[in-house]
Design a protein around this nucleic acid. Structure first.
Length: 189
DNA sequence: GGATCGATCGGCT
DNA sequence: GCCGATCGATCCG
């Protein structure tokens, strides 16, 4: 399968988030592939987006979002979970897609081991869970998904027809202004 | 320098 | 359904 090129990420974030559905997120760990189909993603777009980590400008933590597209932005949340984002749009404009859920494909034994005895449907059905399942941590922050030797990247897989895509407000985002409650969450039905 | 709290998860009631 | 874990970036004084 073909790896998604940087040009795929260098587009409007909403389009990237929607088009990531059905694609395959691949983690190479000690030569083995662990992968899953992306089935849920959310867009975070620019300093004007009240829910975006870049809402207060550039900081050490969110620097990756200001970098070139096709890189990872990984951060620690609640002191114990990592969340994986894929940086979009042109360099200098802070935007990214949060990967919220995967359907397990390859490397299932490794995923299961990383998820300690939990049932398969709970291996990667949340942003913190999928990072554990794929062994993604802070060291992947700013990693280039388009580098030839990348250990984390996205491969073109199944295209999801519009009829199978659902949208809604982003999870865990509070506030009543229209921009914050915009339907920037994309899921596969 | 210190208090606050988050794009979450899992265990317990 | 609710709540505690756990920590570092951010913000305020």
């Amino acid at each position: 399968m073909e790896r998604l090129p940087r040009a795929f990420f260098a587009r409007p974030t909403l389009a990237v988030a929607r088009d990531l559905l059905g694609q395959r997120l691949v983690r190479v760990l000690d030569g083995a592939r662990i992968s899953g189909r992306i089935v849920e993603a959310e867009a975070y777009v620019g300093e004007g987006d009240r829910a975006c980590h870049a809402r207060s400008g550039r900081t050490v933590r969110n620097a990756a979002m200001y970098g070139p597209p096709g890189h990872a932005y990984v951060y620690l949340i609640y002191g114990m979970h990592y969340c994986l984002n894929l940086v979009t749009e042109e360099e200098g404009f802070p935007a990214a897609v949060l990967i919220r859920a995967l359907q397990p494909l390859e490397g299932r034994a490794l995923m299961q081991a990383h998820r300690a005895g939990r049932p398969e449907r709970e291996w990667a059905n949340g942003p913190g869970k999928l990072c554990r399942a794929l062994a993604i941590d802070r060291t992947f922050d700013k990693a280039d998904l388009c580098a030839p030797d990348a250990r984390l990247f996205v491969e073109a897989d199944a295209a999801i027809p519009d009829g199978a895509v659902a949208t809604g407000p982003r999870v865990g985002v509070t506030g009543d202004d229209a921009a914050v409650s915009a339907p920037w969450r994309f899921t596969v039905r």
